[in-house]
Nucleic acid binder design. Structure first.
Lengths: 121, 121
DNA sequence: CTTTTATTCAACCATATGGTTGACTGACCG
DNA sequence: CGGTCAGTCAACCATATGGTTGAATAAAAG
């Protein structure tokens, strides 16, 4: 189950509050990247990029594997799921899909057996 | 359609990166609250709470209506929807629902006309 | 009109953030 | 071994953040 601890959420949302870091995550969504590869698109110094990566890492959003002299990063979706989960609480405020909720609450008779529940962690 | 501008997302995620502000949003999910009401649960000064509220406001997460000498705040879910939308991109990394994606990509023949697409804004 | 009440504003403070540069550590190369 | 490459670390800087207190504004109450 998703824990949603305030400490974690603070770090996660803070990490997401920066374009550079969000773009780095987008990059990592396509696969593993080294620190150098992640830093390359930006005009900042490698040290600055390294700091961004550390922020992502301490927020738990990425994992790092030291492979020889290079550090290979990959996405860790867990914290993103927590953030998503937090936001889901407010989903009713922007969707008109209360009908869907209602449909889920009753009516097990019409459910599709291929995929019923995929939201727990 | 959700714009997902970097400026907006920066402000939104930054605003969400603080427990106090997240709790204020939770409070506002139950209805309108004055600045004083929002500040009351916390041991910080009213001025500090006022700053938090301003952060939420400039991020577009809340709207303020000056009613006499009190300022009444209410939730504006739009930016939350943007943040949610941004996170949805990564949903495939924590759910095993690739089959659903696959089903959407091909097979228009099997689609259910009652609820097909509700994610655009 | 004077006093509360609700809230912001301004000045200030400590710490965090994001950036820089230069030195340092380790791994690979010749 | 000596050089280069990948990346971190440390010191430093400017600005932002979150908090404080005290004064200012403006509406309601007496």
């Amino acid at each position: 189950m998703v824990e949603l601890q305030t400490v974690e959420l603070n770090a996660v949302f803070h990490a997401l509050g920066d374009v550079t870091r969000r773009q780095m995550l987008r990059e990592l969504a396509d696969g593993e990247r080294t620190v150098g590869q992640l830093a390359e698109p930006y005009e900042i110094s490698l040290a600055a990029a390294s700091k961004h990566i550390k922020v992502l890492e301490t927020a738990g959003l990425i994992r790092r594997e030291v492979r020889g002299r290079t550090h290979v990063c990959r996405l860790d979706p867990g914290p993103l799921a927590s953030a998503h989960q937090w936001l889901v609480f407010y989903e009713r405020f922007w969707t008109g899909r209360l009908d869907v909720l209602e449909r889920l609450l009753r009516a097990e008779d019409t459910e599709d057996p291929t995929e019923t529940n995929g939201d727990e962690e």
